[in-house]
Nucleic acid binder design. Structure first.
Length: 241
DNA sequence: CGTGGCCCCTGTGGGC
DNA sequence: TGCCCACAGGGGCCAC
């Protein structure tokens, strides 16, 4: 079933917290966008009816030029959530921790104080810090030389500081390189990411560590495939504490 | 509170 | 070539 909604709005701003986007109209209404695993926002010159899994599309006029914004999502794990005003966005975003690019080590240390969960689970959860997914948690823990199963509350202040530095560096570098294209990911203009070529551990289990040449291991942590270097990330003293 | 196992879906790649 | 299985950038829910 195709729906046509002849409602229009003037896009005033785009906001983001963690992995969620908000397209905010001048009248205050907003559309919250979560991409899930395979969701894409694409800006195209014309509608190509052979592209599959396009669940929503908008005609977009910018400086006299007509283009189309598409929401495409093969696996349909993403979602579009209409919000009537900014308060509605905030109520969705209140459950998210501070964004990964602005969170402080002190905030993380505070949130982890009584948490006995594995560090990886703590970082993926989105309630202490928002914006880190499976790739960037694994890559950041490698850089910080922390074991994914280290107990969240066991980190020293200096380790939190280092970890924050590591994931912010990782995210900024990936953004500069257009993200990680494993399969579906594209920038809104359809360009492939290049950061996947820089991964140290993600997707490299069985290969040699780029630093110490140990074999990169693969385990399931918190239900997610996890890659790490057993030598560089030898946090055995903190595991389970 | 923490953990593990489902579930939501489609597509792809490997083994036979 | 086809069939079956495992697995994939996320996240919610439920039983234990």
């Amino acid at each position: 079933m195709r729906h046509r909604l002849f409602d229009s709005a003037v896009l005033a701003s785009v906001k983001r917290k963690g992995k969620q986007l908000a397209l905010v109209a001048r009248d205050g209404r907003a559309l919250l966008v979560r991409l899930g695993m395979t969701g894409q926002l694409l800006l195209v010159d014309s509608i190509d009816p052979t592209i599959k899994h396009v669940h929503a599309s908008w005609a977009v006029r910018a400086s006299g030029r007509l283009r189309f914004l598409l929401f495409r999502d093969p696996r349909r794990f993403g979602s579009l959530i209409p919000c009537c005003d900014c308060d509605a966005i905030d109520s969705h975003w209140d459950t998210l921790g501070p964004d990964a690019l602005s969170v402080t080590a002190a905030q993380l240390a505070g949130a982890a104080k009584h948490r006995r969960v594995p560090l990886k689970v703590f970082l993926l959860d989105q309630s202490a810090v928002s914006g880190l997914g499976n790739i960037y948690v694994d890559e950041s823990l490698f850089l910080a030389r922390l074991h994914p199963r280290a107990c969240a509350r066991s980190l020293a202040d200096s380790e939190w500081k280092n970890l924050v530095t590591c994931f912010q560096k990782t995210l900024k570098k990936s953004i500069r390189m257009g993200g990680s294209t494993l399969r579906d990911y594209r920038t809104p203009d359809g360009v492939l990411g290049r950061f996947q070529h820089m991964h140290h551990v993600y997707g490299r289990s069985g290969e040699l560590c780029t630093v110490c040449k140990a074999v990169v291991e693969r385990e399931v942590v918190g239900g997610r495939t996890t890659s790490f270097c057993p030598m560089c990330q030898n946090g055995s003293t903190n595991v389970g504490k």
